[in-house]
Every structure is written in structure tokens, then in C-alpha cells.
Design a protein around this nucleic acid. Structure first.
Lengths: 330, 330
DNA sequence: CTATTCTATGCAACCGGTTGCATGTCAAGG
DNA sequence: CCTTGACATGCAACCGGTTGCATAGAATAG
């Protein structure tokens, strides 16, 4: 059971076996049309026989090009992200790249550290819901290609899920049901999506002549954050709440139930991102989530940047809509 | 807005700036105790000033050691895995490593491809719920350190979540409630956990003099797989079912409701992995999940292997228990 | 004061590929 | 038949670090 690790064969051994120069072996793999068909065959045969596979590291060192990309998210365990990760994963895979995954725990310091750690070994990076100050993002983007998801920085290619449109629909929907005061339960203050949702609530309530209040939840969105906020929300006199995300909304639902108040009869709740939808009780009305499309688009954008280095200021926006379920009917 | 990428400084530039040899710069970073304190300071100063950071790729090429590890899972979007990923992530991070993430879509071919793709750039790999044939696992483990999670291959270090113990508790619990016929709804046939759970059901029903039937769900566990299996389960005459995982159980719950049958009054359902627990309606009784501990243990094991190359045949088992909620009361 | 050991640093080869340029061969053109 | 060009392959430098060995100067021993 001894685990003796035998080194894998190198280009030189293949060259010797096929009786050609190492450069010929290299070309057989990277530019076969440059060689005679017969030589290519001989080299590939020898390589096959020896179990040779080109060494990524050596190749990257010599070309300066890596076939890796990094995806950095605030929290893998937040149900919003896995579908996004999976979508990116799928594209990365098609392109024969490898994916580094980073988790920041919503902490800008940690995010900065990760970007630095990955920097040396990737062709580019995707930052999802980045909490970094704009200046840091710019600095990193100056060194290597970066695509943002849900963060709007002029000059840095970005994919935005416009939850504003869905949130405005939500407010209109609540207004139609007769609600006069609407609470918004916030997410992380550094989150672009949070700012956007808050603004949408403001705009829509103003336009429809409703009152709105904002209630701050803790920095990291979670079930508990929503739950403990419930009392405070009820004290504001609001009869409906829109939460930063579904997880928070789910907690809010629990907190409101704790107070003995019936949803949706006496209080309406709307989530964002639609990740828990059918699973809460009652089923949660929520603003739809386009995370898989966003992941796909982000990688496509990044690979465009890798081909033509002078892509600039792309701003790709995905619309969202309200999905009405059982927490907002009368 | 032109994105001109300036190359980062190399060891030679730092050497020139500090007026020492490149080897001295290298040592200032890797073995400072070998140098005079004064020289180290001078080098570090110069590096700081130039914004120098050692190049991972070059270092890996020359030492043959990488500070990356890969984690391969069947399905990122399956709620079982994010907490595991996160736990691994956290440890990897502490050790100043980078994490590659691979998604196999439950497909052994894809898994094999990924292992190959990562092989050249990692110090080791963690395969969670691997679907690979044993021979392939052995072959890969001969080339570089591999730790398995939820897969029991003799001679390959592995972390096992013993859901058997929890499943036996579940059967005993159902027996105590008066159930005589118990169905097991299967998961992927290549899954070690699936085999283990099936065996536990067999053992426990036999011991308690109950009947058991097994009903095959589709290969990939999912809500829909569970839902469409419901009819078939009911036809067997069973009055209780244990499902391969919570997601399948959740679907089963929906399918049973579709048939107009009340849970838990007329039928009992138990899940595995406890990832949906409080979130289904009624709240799902399930076998607990030790995924975070497993992730932690797997990385610890892997890093031990990196230090002392002759670790062999470690088998780390985590016990599980039944968590009773509302789908199994009378 | 010389011989010996120790310490700090330099030298140069090496890791495993890629690539610009040189060279040799063969076919077509004049 | 000689020239010219196209094509296939070889040569050697380079990517940016690491490391075994050599060496010079300082410290210690005899």
C-alpha cells in the first residue's frame, strides 16, 4: 500500500521516444497544422504510450496564459449562489478551463486577500456581489480582466440583475392590495443590490403615494437576522414588508408568526431572489432570480475579454419580475 | 479607460533594487533565517516599494509543490454540498491554499475528466461522493494524494458519514409508531451512501420483524424524482418511506399530497442529510448531516498527507442521528 | 598568528514547457 | 540546371522562480 508517486513523463521523454526535438512535441500539441501529419501521429503515439500530458504549470509560466478563472462569492452557503456557481462552472468547463472558488464571508478584507491570492494563477476573475470599495476593484481590474456581477462600476464590464424592476412591481402589487405603509428590511450596506432595491422601494412608494420605512437587519443576511427584525418591523405600523432576500424574508415570516400575526391576512411579505419560493409556509411571493443567466453571461463576457483585450464598459442588464405566491394575497 | 496590463515585477528587478543576487531575494521570502536580518530588511523594503509578489506558477514549476487543492462534488446546487464546500473552503483558506471546485453532474466520465484537468496543478484532491469505479480512484490516488468523502475504498484515506446509524434509528422510530411495511426510495446506484442506507434499512427491518420494499427513483436525486415516485411507493402497501435524501423526500411529500394522502396521519416520511428540515411543510423528519465536520476532517487529513507522505488507510467515521419533526408522528 | 569552522551570499543549473530564428529539403519556376 | 520559395524541423533562449554547491570573510580554536 506504499504510496510511491512516480513523476509523470516530460516532453523530453516523449521527444526521445518519437525521435524528434522537444519543440516538435510541443508543436504536435499546440499547432499540429504546422507539422507533417506523419510526424504528428508519431509524436501523439509516443505520448499516448508513455501516458504523457502537457504540464499546465510549465505552459503557463512560459506563455503567461493560464487556463484558470476565479469566481469569488460572499457566501457559498447562501442559496442564491449555488445556481450561479453551477452556471459559471458549466461554461468554464466547456471552455476547458478550471475554476477557483473563493468565499469572502461578506468581508471586504477577505475579498481583497483572495483576489491577491488568485491573481497570479488565473486568466481573469468574476466577482459576484463584490463588497470591495470601488477603488480596489479598479486597481485589481488594471492588472487583469475582471467581470462583476451585481455591482455597477463604470468602466468595468458587469452583469447586473435589475431587481429594481421586480421590486417596483412588488410595491405596485402591494398597493393594489390596499397596503399603505411598506417596510423594507435591508441587506448588507455595501451591497449594490441592496441599494438598488431600497431605491426601487422609495421610487415606487413615492409615485404611488404610499409611505415607506426602512428597517436595518444585521450585516449578514440570514434566517435569524430576519427573525429578530420582525418585532421592529411590526412596530413601524407597516402592513407589508419587502425583504432584501428570500432567506431574510423566511426568517421574517417566522418572526411574525412568533408574534401571533397571520400572514397573509394581517401582514404581507415579499422576498427577493426567489430561491426559497415554494418551500416556505405559506409559499413566499418573491422577485425572480436570474442568477444562472448572470453566471453564463459573466463567463462569456470574460472570455471575450481574453480574446480581444480592449473590451470596455460593457453593462449587461437582466430584468426581473414579481412571482406572486401565498404571502401577499388577501 | 484603456486596459493596458502592466507586468508585475520579477525577482530580478527586486534583486537589482536591493543590490543582491536573485537567490538572496528568493531566500528572503522562503528562508529568512538563513540571511542576516539587515539583508532581509533591505530586500523586503525593495519588494514592497516595487509591489513585488512571488509568482506562484514559477515557484510551483521549480519546486513541484502547489498550494492549490481541488474539491470535486457531484452537484453544487444540491443543498447537501454548499455547507461542505464552505467548510473545506474555510480550512483551505487558513492554510493559505487556493481551492479548485469541480462539478461532475453525477457523471463518472465527467469526474474522470476533471480529475485529469486538475491533476497537474494541485497538491491533492478531495472527492466528495465520488461516482468513479474503484479502479479509477486507485489509479488517481497512485499519482497524487486523494481523500474521499462518503466513499469507502480500502487503502485510500476517507471520511465517512455513517448514515447507517441514523437510518436504523429511523426504522426503530417508525416501528415504535406501529408501521409494518417500510419503503426505501433509492438514490444513485453508484453512491456509497445509497448502498449504506439501503443496507441499514434491510438490517433494521429484519431485526425488528418488519417488511421492507425498495423503490427506485431516477439516477439523479431531485424534487421531481421524488414526486413521480410517490404513486409507486403507495402501491407497495408501505405506510412509511425513508428517502435517499431530503430533496427526494421533499418531492415525495409533494407527490403524496398530490394523491390526497395526509402526512403524517396516513403516511410517514423520513429524509436523509437534514438540509431541508424546518423548511418543508410539514417539517421533515430526517437523519442528521455532518457535512461541515466531514469537510473539515477531509482537509485536515489531506494536509497531513502532504506533510508525511506515508499515511495509509485512514478511515474516519462520523455517526449520525435521527432528528424527529412532523412527518413521522401519529 | 595560523588553522578551522561557521555564516552569509553568489553562481549556475534546473523545473517543463514555448517560440523566434536558422537550417535543410524538395518542388516549382525561369 | 540553377534559383527561389515553401514547408518541416531543429536549436537555443526564455518564462520566474528554487536550491546544491562554491567561496569569501568573520569568528573561534589551538
Amino acid at each position: 500500500m506504499e504510496q510511491r508517486r512516480k513523476p509523470s513523463p516530460t516532453i523530453d521523454q516523449v521527444a526521445a521516444a518519437a525521435d524528434v526535438n522537444r519543440s516538435t512535441v510541443s508543436r504536435a500539441f499546440t499547432r499540429p497544422q504546422m507539422l507533417s501529419a506523419e510526424t504528428v501521429r508519431r509524436v501523439l503515439d509516443a505520448a499516448e504510450r508513455l501516458g504523457y500530458a502537457p504540464n499546465h504549470t510549465a505552459r503557463a509560466l512560459s506563455t503567461g496564459r493560464h487556463r484558470n478563472i476565479a469566481l469569488i462569492v460572499p457566501d457559498v452557503a447562501n442559496p442564491y449562489f449555488p445556481p450561479l456557481i453551477r452556471a459559471v462552472q458549466r461554461e468554464v468547463d466547456k471552455a476547458d478551463f478550471c475554476l477557483f472558488l473563493g468565499n469572502t464571508d461578506e468581508d471586504p478584507k477577505q475579498e481583497d486577500k483572495l483576489v491577491g491570492r488568485f491573481a497570479g494563477q488565473v486568466a481573469g476573475m468574476i466577482l459576484a456581489s463584490s463588497r470591495l470599495p470601488e477603488a480596489r476593484i479598479r486597481a485589481h481590474a488594471a492588472v487583469r480582466p475582471i467581470v462583476l456581477i451585481n455591482r455597477d462600476v463604470a468602466g468595468i464590464p458587469r452583469v447586473l440583475i435589475d431587481s429594481g424592476s421586480g421590486v417596483e412591481e412588488a410595491v405596485a402589487h402591494l398597493a393594489a392590495l390596499g397596503h399603505k405603509i411598506i417596510a423594507y428590511v435591508t441587506g448588507p450596506s455595501t451591497s449594490w443590490s441592496n441599494r438598488q432595491r431600497l431605491q426601487a422601494v422609495r421610487r415606487a412608494t413615492e409615485r404611488l403615494n404610499l409611505k415607506h420605512v426602512t428597517v436595518a437587519a444585521t450585516a449578514v443576511p440570514s434566517f435569524d437576522a430576519g427573525r429578530v427584525t420582525a418585532k421592529q418591523v411590526l412596530r413601524t405600523g407597516a402592513t407589508a414588508a419587502i425583504a432584501f432576500d428570500d432567506v431574510t424574508a423566511h426568517g421574517l415570516l417566522a418572526g411574525i408568526a412568533d408574534e401571533g400575526i397571520d400572514v397573509p391576512k394581517r401582514f404581507a411579505v415579499v422576498g427577493c431572489d426567489d430561491v426559497l419560493g415554494a418551500v416556505t409556509q405559506p409559499a413566499l411571493t418573491s422577485v425572480s432570480n436570474r442568477a444562472p443567466e448572470a453566471g453564463h453571461a459573466a463567463f462569456t463576457l470574460l472570455s471575450d475579454m481574453l480574446q480581444s483585450p480592449a473590451i470596455r464598459d460593457v453593462r449587461y442588464v437582466l430584468e426581473t419580475h414579481l412571482v406572486v405566491r401565498d404571502t401577499t394575497v388577501r
